[in-house]
Nucleic acid binder design. Structure first.
Length: 586
RNA sequence: GCGUUCGUAGCUCAGCUGGAUAGAGCAUUAGACUCCGACUCUAAAGGCCGCAGGUUCGACUCCUGUCGAGCGCACCA
C-alpha cells in the first residue's frame, strides 16, 4: 500500500502551508483565507519532481508579483528532514521541488518488500462494485465487439480490485424474452428445412455437417428464411445436431412444442459455449446471472408495481408507460405493451434493482457498446424513480470496433453467418496479444482492429515489447545466478549509488504505479495501465543500454540488480492486471 | 432535426479534470552489438491541437458557435 508519490506530494503541501503560516504570522501575508493551490508533476524534469502554482494564485489577492511571493515562500520553506533536497523558483512564478536521493532509494526497497502487491492502493476503501460486461446474447456466438468488451471489462475489474474495491465480475444471460423467441423460431424453421424432402436429399449430397450447414445457408432459394430471424450457420448446426441425435420425429409435433424443445436443447449449449470461449480468453466470472430468474421470481412485475405505487406510470393506447421524462429522459417509455408483455426495459430495471438493492452493491458498472448509449438516461430515470441514487450506476461506453483486413473494413453482421467470432479470433491471434491490443486505447474511442497486424505477431504489437523487457530482466538475473551471484537485501544507503539519469527516470516511473492505478480506477480506464506497461518497458530498455549490471563493482551491481528486480515486479504486476503472460524467456 | 462520442505529426494514439518549449510508437533518413538477449537503443525530420470567437496571469484542456465523422432516437433487445 505504499504510494510514495502521494506521500511526497502531501509532504510538500505541508511544507508550503507552514511556510505560509510563518508569513502570515510575521505580517508578510494577510490573515484572510488564502486561495487553494495545486501541486503537480511537471512533464519536464528540469522543472523538478513536483511544482506548485501557489505563488501565482496568490498574486492577485496579495497584489504582489508572483516571483516575489515565491521568494518569500521559499525562504520560509523548511526542507530539512523532508524527502526534498531543494526548491527553486522558475518561469512565471512556479516553485519547483526536487526529491532527494534517499527518496529514490526508498522507492526501490519499497517495491521489493511489497512484491506482487506493489501498486495496490486502498482508495476504494472496500466499496463493493459489480462489473457487468460482455453479456452477449446466448442466441449465437460472440463477435469482435464482445472481444473488446471482454478485455476492457475484465481489466477494468482488475484495476478496481487493485485500487482497493471489492469487485465482482458478472455476465448477464438474456435467456428470456423476445430474442429467445426469435432463436426458437429460427431453429424451428431450420429444423423443418432439414426434415423436408430438399433437406433430406442435401444430406446425401453433403455427408459432413460443416458443408451441409454451409450449403443450406448459401442456398437461400431452396431454403428461404424470413427477415426477422437469426440466419447464422450456428443455428443450422444446432438443428442438424438435434436431428442427428433424435431424428425427425419432433417435426410432427405442433410448432410451439418444436420451438420450445429446440430452444431448450440449444440454449444451454450456447451458454456453455460462451463460458468456454470466455475462459479461453482468460475471463472467469463470479456470477452468471440469468434474466429468466427475474421473470420466474416475479421481480419483473414487481418493478411495474413499484413504479405504479410511486405514481410514475400511466396508461395510454392500452400500454403502461413510465414517466421517464420527469427524470431527465427525452421521452416516456413503455413498460408493458398493449399485448400485456413487458418490454425489455422492465427486466433490465429489475436486474439493476437486484444489483443495487437486493444484492446491495455500492456501485454497478455496465460495459456497453456505443449503440446502447441512448439507454443510459432511461435506466437512470428508472432508478431515480425507484428512490435509488442514479450515480450508483456507471456506464462504460465502448465505441464500435471496425475490423480491417487487407486495408478494407469487414462488415460486422451477426446475421451474415460470416462474422468473425471471438473463438476464431483467438485461433488466429494469441490471447495475450488480443487482450493487450483491445486495452491499448480508451474504451470510448473507436478503433480499427487490424487483423493482419494482430495475426502477424510483429514487433509493432507492443505486447511483445513489454514481454521482451520482462524476459530480458529474467535473463540478467539467471546469467548472474550462473556466476553464483544472487541479489542481496540492500539498505537505502547502499542503494544511493543509483544516480544515473536512466536509473532515476526508471525509479521515478516505478514510483508512480499506485497513482496510475488510482487514476485508471477513477476514470474507469484500464488502457492507462496498458500504456504504463509500455512506458516502463521503454524506460527499462533505456536503462539497460546505458547501465550494465554484470561486470560492475559489487556495490553498483547489487544496487542495479535490486532495480532490475523492482522493474521486473512492476512489469509483472501490470501484466497480471491485464492478464497477459510475463514470460521468463521468449 | 434532437441527443451523444470524437477531430492533436504522413499513419495509430498520449497529454495526468487550466500550467512552463504540445509528447510517444509506426513509417522515412542517419547511426550503435569482440560486452548482461539488437524482439533493443541513439539521433534527425515531421504540428495554425478541425475552424472562429469567448473566459484569465496562462487554453490542446473550460464556454459558445461552426464544419466533418461514428453511434443512437420502437409497444426490438
Amino acid at each position: 500500500m505504499t504510494n510514495l508519490i502521494k506521500s511526497a506530494s502531501q509532504e510538500m503541501r505541508g511544507i508550503i502551508m507552514s511556510a505560509m503560516g510563518v508569513l502570515v504570522a510575521n505580517g508578510s501575508f494577510p490573515a484572510e483565507a488564502l486561495p487553494a493551490f495545486n501541486i503537480e508533476i511537471p512533464a519536464d524534469k528540469t522543472h523538478g519532481d513536483f511544482a506548485t502554482n501557489a505563488a501565482m494564485v496568490l498574486a492577485k489577492p496579495l497584489k504582489m508579483p508572483p516571483r516575489k511571493i515565491a521568494e518569500l515562500i521559499c525562504s520560509e520553506a523548511v526542507l530539512d528532514g523532508s524527502c526534498f533536497s531543494k526548491c527553486e523558483i522558475a518561469g512565471p512564478g512556479f516553485i519547483n521541488f526536487f526529491l532527494s536521493q534517499s527518496w529514490f532509494s526508498n522507492v526501490v526497497s519499497s517495491v521489493l518488500s511489497d512484491g506482487n502487491n506493489y501498486g495496490r492502493t486502498s482508495t476504494g476503501n472496500g466499496k463493493k462494485i459489480l462489473v457487468e460486461f460482455v453479456s452477449a446474447n446466448p442466441t449465437g456466438p460472440m463477435h469482435i465487439g464482445n472481444a473488446r468488451g471482454g478485455a476492457i471489462g475484465d481489466c477494468l475489474a482488475s484495476v478496481l480490485d487493485w485500487a482497493g474495491y471489492e469487485v465482482a465480475r458478472e455476465f448477464y444471460v438474456n435467456d428470456a424474452g423476445n430474442q429467445v423467441e426469435k432463436f426458437g423460431k429460427s431453429l424451428f424453421l431450420r429444423f423443418m428445412q432439414i426434415c423436408s424432402a430438399e433437406g433430406q436429399s442435401l444430406i446425401t449430397k453433403c455427408p459432413d455437417n460443416e458443408s451441409f450447414c454451409q450449403a443450406i445457408y448459401d442456398d437461400a432459394e431452396t431454403f428461404p428464411m424470413p427477415e426477422d430471424v437469426y440466419l447464422g450457420v450456428d443455428i443450422i448446426a444446432h438443428a442438424k445436431n438435434y436431428y442427428d441425435a433424435n431424428g425427425s420425429e419432433l417435426s410432427a409435433k405442433d410448432e410451439s412444442e418444436i420451438k420450445t424443445t429446440l430452444s431448450n436443447y440449444a440454449l444451454p449449449l450456447n451458454i456453455e459455449g460462451l463460458e468456454r470461449d470466455l475462459k479461453k480468453y482468460n475471463i472467469t466470472y463470479d456470477t452468471w446471472f440469468r434474466e429468466s430468474v427475474l421473470h420466474n421470481n416475479g421481480d419483473v412485475m414487481k418493478i411495474v408495481e413499484l413504479l405504479k405505487e410511486r405514481g410514475y406510470t400511466y396508461e395510454q393506447d392500452g400500454a403502461i408507460w413510465f414517466q421517464a421524462s420527469k427524470f431527465g429522459d427525452d421521452k416516456d417509455r413503455v413498460l408493458v405493451r398493449a399485448n400485456g408483455i413487458p418490454t425489455y426495459f422492465v427486466p433490465d430495471i429489475a436486474y439493476h434493482y437486484n444489483k443495487l438493492v437486493t444484492r446491495g452493491y455500492d456501485i454497478a458498472i455496465d460495459v456497453l457498446g456505443a449503440d446502447h448509449h441512448g439507454y443510459i438516461p432511461r435506466m437512470r430515470a428508472a432508478l431515480t424513480a425507484l428512490g435509488i441514487d442514479p450515480s450508483r450506476l456507471d456506464i462504460v461506453i465502448m465505441q464500435m470496433v471496425r475490423l480491417v483486413r487487407n486495408g478494407e473494413t469487414v462488415k460486422l453482421s451477426k446475421r451474415s453467418g460470416k462474422a468473425i467470432t471471438l473463438s476464431t479470433l483467438l485461433d488466429e491471434v494469441p490471447i495475450s496479444a488480443a487482450r493487450f491490443f483491445f486495452n491499448l486505447r480508451e474504451s470510448n474511442s473507436q478503433f480499427d482492429f487490424d487483423l493482419d497486424l494482430a495475426i502477424e505477431q510483429s514487433s509493432q504489437n507492443p505486447v511483445y515489447y513489454v514481454q521482451y523487457a520482462h524476459a530480458r530482466i529474467c535473463s540478467i538475473i539467471s546469467n548472474l545466478a550462473a556466476e553464483g551471484i544472487s541479489a542481496k537485501k540492500l539498505s537505502d544507503e547502499q542503494m544511493n549509488v543509483l544516480t544515473q539519469p536512466e536509473e532515476i527516470a526508471l525509479i521515478r516511473y516505478i514510483a508512480s504505479l499506485p497513482n496510475e492505478i488510482d487514476t485508471a480506477a477513477r476514470d474507469y480506464d484500464p488502457s492507462k495501465i496498458t500504456r504504463y506497461s509500455v512506458e516502463i518497458a521503454t524506460l527499462f530498455h533505456k536503462f539497460y543500454t546505458a547501465c550494465r549490471v554484470k561486470g560492475e563493482s559489487e556495490e553498483i551491481l547489487q544496487a542495479r540488480l535490486s532495480l532490475c528486480n523492482a522493474a521486473k515486479i512492476v512489469i509483472k504486476n501490470t501484466l497480471d492486471i491485464l492478464k497477459v503472460d510475463a514470460p521468463e524467456q521468449m
